[in-house]
Amino acid sequence: MVGERIKLLRTKKGYSISELAKIAGVSKSYLSYIERNVQRNPSLQFLSKIAETLETSMEYLLEEEEQLDEEWVSLIKKAKDEGVSKEDFQKYLDFVKFKKWEEDQRDPSSRL
């Protein structure tokens, strides 16, 4: 989560909440709310100031926790190298969803 990443970077830099808030020009209480996940949707302006002060990017702060493992990355790269387009991939996903739906229709007990 955003708050956890900010807190991690802040502590690595050796800043207290008060110091980071002052340097970044943001509200100490708002920063505290973000770090404690009381407030979960910080403004882009806030994130921009914090990211700059912590010498990171807004993308890093907003990045989802779950990362693709190396096998997924390799499969996606291979598909791309072999000319599979995003549209092709979406069609494949739709086909897989359809096949699962079709299986569920034949065997209703598999939904349990």
Rank of each mutant, 00 (worst) to 15 (best):
residue 40 R to L: 15
residue 32 S to K: 05
residue 32 S to V: 05
residue 17 I to G: 06
residue 47 L to D: 00
residue 49 K to L: 09
residue 89 F to H: 09
residue 13 K to I: 05
residue 10 R to Q: 00
residue 101 W to F: 10
residue 28 K to H: 13
residue 34 I to D: 02
residue 61 L to I: 01
residue 12 K to E: 11
residue 49 K to V: 02
residue 3 G to F: 01
residue 17 I to K: 12
residue 7 K to N: 02
residue 29 S to F: 06
residue 90 Q to W: 08
residue 28 K to F: 07
residue 56 T to E: 06
residue 93 L to H: 04
residue 65 E to C: 06
residue 112 L to V: 12
residue 76 I to C: 09
residue 14 G to K: 00
residue 6 I to H: 01
residue 73 V to W: 03
residue 16 S to K: 03
residue 102 E to N: 08
residue 99 K to T: 12
residue 39 Q to V: 12
residue 22 K to Q: 15
residue 52 E to Y: 10
residue 7 K to R: 15
residue 75 L to E: 12
residue 47 L to E: 02
residue 89 F to P: 01
residue 64 E to R: 13
residue 63 E to G: 10
residue 35 E to P: 00
residue 10 R to A: 03
residue 70 E to R: 05
residue 91 K to H: 09
residue 70 E to T: 10
residue 105 Q to I: 11
residue 96 V to C: 15
residue 14 G to D: 01
residue 88 D to C: 01
residue 98 F to E: 12
residue 52 E to C: 05
residue 107 D to L: 10
residue 9 L to A: 00
residue 112 L to Y: 15
residue 64 E to K: 12
residue 103 E to W: 14
residue 38 V to E: 14
residue 66 E to T: 14
residue 34 I to R: 04
residue 69 D to C: 08
residue 57 S to L: 04
residue 109 S to D: 10
residue 2 V to P: 04
residue 64 E to G: 10
residue 51 A to I: 03
residue 43 S to Y: 06
residue 66 E to N: 15
residue 27 S to P: 02
residue 35 E to N: 06
residue 108 P to E: 04
residue 55 E to M: 12
residue 8 L to G: 09
residue 7 K to W: 01
residue 11 T to C: 05
residue 79 A to W: 09
residue 23 I to L: 04
residue 73 V to L: 12
residue 46 F to G: 01
residue 72 W to T: 15
residue 103 E to T: 14
residue 111 R to V: 14
residue 54 L to P: 04
residue 5 R to E: 01
residue 34 I to V: 11
residue 50 I to F: 01
residue 52 E to I: 06
residue 45 Q to A: 13
residue 102 E to W: 11
residue 39 Q to R: 10
residue 7 K to I: 00
residue 62 L to S: 02
residue 34 I to K: 00
residue 47 L to V: 01
residue 1 M to T: 15
residue 64 E to S: 07
residue 6 I to V: 11
residue 112 L to D: 11
residue 97 K to V: 13
residue 90 Q to S: 07
residue 11 T to Q: 08
residue 91 K to R: 07
residue 111 R to L: 13
residue 79 A to G: 10
residue 85 S to T: 11
residue 29 S to T: 14
residue 107 D to G: 05
residue 96 V to A: 12
residue 97 K to L: 09
residue 46 F to L: 05
residue 100 K to E: 13
residue 43 S to G: 07
residue 101 W to Y: 10
residue 50 I to Q: 03
residue 95 F to P: 03
residue 12 K to Y: 09
residue 1 M to R: 08
residue 105 Q to V: 09
residue 111 R to Y: 15
residue 33 Y to Q: 12
residue 16 S to V: 08
residue 37 N to I: 07
residue 27 S to K: 07
residue 14 G to R: 06
residue 43 S to R: 07
residue 31 L to E: 05
residue 80 K to S: 11
residue 6 I to G: 00
residue 77 K to Y: 11
residue 2 V to E: 01
residue 25 G to H: 03
residue 68 L to V: 09
residue 1 M to Y: 09
residue 19 E to V: 06
residue 100 K to A: 11
residue 91 K to C: 07
residue 14 G to H: 03
residue 61 L to K: 02
residue 43 S to A: 05
residue 12 K to R: 12
residue 39 Q to M: 08
residue 71 E to C: 12
residue 38 V to A: 09
residue 48 S to N: 15
residue 16 S to C: 04
residue 99 K to D: 14
